[in-house]
């Protein structure tokens, strides 16, 4: 199927009238995502024919159809992109609210972090939401103890080609900051850290920008990108 300038209006009309085959419909809907002219032509065509629909004699309605709709509605989550991805808000209970960090967004993300952790068989011992200086959520760390932790980046962090993001925690003042590992590229990752005491409530986690291969000193040397304090899932 072609979407030439001359052809667009005609194809849009046939789409709106329902005259295209299933495969052509799929092609057109994919093309619409990137072709603004086509999108506009479809919108214009819809508006042209809309009076044939708005003037229809309404059917009788009843409460049972609405009840069926309402039962099937998924929760609307904080970020529209997460639509349909499960019970993200079902865990937004009082325990999380009480420990919310700074903002409603952080609260919701804590709940998301918990939901994420609940969907797996192994539960993390603590979850930490990491915020930048502006108070914006950047990442969630889940620490499982047993030398295992996972970090999910929740913001686009600009990492220069010769740098890397290193994840740290502060098990105690005596031990000082300990590296949990590096994030490969700018993706979320599982970390295999050293053997440490079990993570506790209020333990500090942070991510810093370090040179390739990680901090040469074994202590954070680069700028802190985000930090946050652990919470125990309630």
């Amino acid at each position: 199927m072609t979407f030439d300038r001359d052809n667009i209006a005609a194809v849009a009309d046939e789409y709106v009238l329902g005259l295209l085959e299933a495969a052509e419909v799929a092609d057109l809907e994919a093309e619409m995502e990137r072709n603004d002219d086509l999108k506009a032509a479809v919108a214009a065509s819809r508006e042209r024919f809309l009076p044939l629909d708005t003037t229809v004699e309404p059917a009788t309605t009843d409460e049972t159809l609405w009840q069926r709709i309402e039962r099937a509605l998924p929760e609307q989550s904080a970020s529209p992109r997460r639509n349909g991805q499960g019970p993200a808000n079902d865990n937004n209970g009082n325990g999380w609210r009480a420990t919310a960090i700074a903002s409603l967004a952080a609260t919701v993300l804590l709940a998301l972090g918990l939901a994420f952790s609940l969907m797996r068989t192994v539960e993390p011992l603590v979850v930490a939401v990491l915020l930048n200086d502006a108070g914006e959520v950047q990442a969630v760390v889940e620490d499982f103890g047993n030398e295992n932790a996972a970090i999910r980046l929740l913001a686009d962090i600009d990492v220069p080609a010769d740098k890397t993001i290193q994840v740290w925690t502060l098990p105690s003042k005596e031990m000082g900051p300990v590296s949990l590992g590096l994030i490969e590229g700018i993706r979320s990752t599982r970390l295999d850290g050293p053997s440490l005491p079990l993570p506790k409530d209020n333990q500090l986690y942070e991510i810093t920008l370090e040179q390739q291969g990680g901090s040469p000193t074994g202590r954070p040397t680069g700028p802190i990108l985000a930090k946050g304090w652990a919470r125990l899932p309630r």
Binding site: D53, T54, V56, E57, P58, A59, T60, T61, L65, W66, I69, E70, L73, E75, Q76, P80
Partner: peptide, 24 residues
């Protein structure tokens, strides 16, 4: 309002439009 999770807004759309939409 629907995009913000307001079910009453969806109910409003249902109340106003469902009869025509079923007929269409």
């Amino acid at each position: 309002a629907c995009a913000n999770g307001d079910r009453n807004a969806l109910r409003h759309i249902y109340d106003v439009e469902a009869g025509r939409l079923i007929a269409i």
